[in-house]
């Protein structure tokens, strides 16, 4: 494509990217400062605030909770989301089309309304333990990512290969695991990782479901910010950005980041 973009427009776009990345650079800088308050540019350089994260037990605990919740919730969601995505792609005649929209409801309904409703019905109504309510809430929250991203892979899959395996005597289950699954592997990995990061960063659902003793990292960060304003929060933020970098690397290697512009 020939490049005849107006120079003023390019200058504007440069400013926009400066606006997008500047604040994140500021966080990285202030996480490294030797001062006991947040400042940028950093005065002196230290990794002390990173060590400090692990000295605060609330951060240690919530990090572990958030990580396990993101892995567990996403795994649960994949376990039921993959069969649904498969059925939607494979049995277009048997399954009514509106069902595909049902799995997108967790994005359509305001997250904060979902969190409040789950708190009322699961935690208070059914008396489910906090961890279990959180797990259900997060599995629900990431279901759209699991169904949609895996579904996108399945739409590119040629089901006649699967039919060939079955007609050659393969059982349906074996055909799924040895023929279909390896072909949609990239979609599953990308979907998993996008769901993982969504769950890891969630605030609106978790804030209603966390309770005494059990909290997630973003909720703990919010609580910490209201009392302390030291570089520890900045260093936790930097750790979370490193997770984002890892997530992006994995998506790039599976479906490619341009997948996100579709």
């Amino acid at each position: 494509m020939q490049n005849k973009t107006h120079p003023l427009l390019i200058a504007f776009a440069v400013l926009v990217f400066f606006f997008l990345l500047g604040p994140l650079v500021i966080i990285i800088g202030s996480a490294l400062s030797e001062t006991s308050y947040l400042t940028f540019p950093p005065q002196g350089l230290t990794l002390h605030w990173f060590e400090n994260i692990f000295e605060i037990s609330a951060f240690r605990r919530t990090m572990a909770t958030s990580f396990m919740l993101a892995v567990g919730g996403t795994a649960l969601s994949m376990l039921i989301g993959i069969p649904a995505a498969y059925a939607l792609a494979r049995y277009r005649v048997e399954i009514p089309r509106f069902l595909g929209n049902v799995y997108v409801l967790p994005i359509l309904i305001p997250e904060i309304v979902l969190g409040f409703s789950l708190m009322k019905s699961l935690a208070t109504g059914l008396g489910l333990p906090i961890t279990l309510s959180l797990l259900v809430g997060h599995a629900l929250l990431v279901l759209p990512y699991c169904v949609r991203v895996v579904g996108a892979s399945l739409n590119n899959f040629d089901f006649s290969i699967e039919e060939a395996a079955v007609s050659l005597g393969c059982t349906r289950a074996k055909a799924f695991f040895t023929v279909v699954l390896p072909n949609i592997q990239a979609g599953i990995i990308a979907g998993f990782i996008l769901a993982f990061i969504t769950s890891l960063n969630d605030v609106s659902v978790s804030i209603f479901l966390t309770g005494p003793g059990v909290s997630t990292l973003p909720i703990q960060l919010l609580a910490h910010m209201e009392q302390f304003f030291d570089p520890t929060i900045a260093s936790v933020s930097v750790l979370l950005m490193l997770v984002t970098v890892a997530v992006m690397a994995i998506v790039e290697r599976t479906l490619g980041l341009t997948f996100l512009t579709k």
């Binding site: 990345l21 890891l200 960060l221 970098v245 992006m248």
Partner: peptide, 16 residues
Amino acid sequence: AAVFPLLTGVVVRSFA
């Protein structure tokens, strides 16, 4: 450069 902030959490970005 656009995806990176998008995938970074709301809490981190508001904190900035």
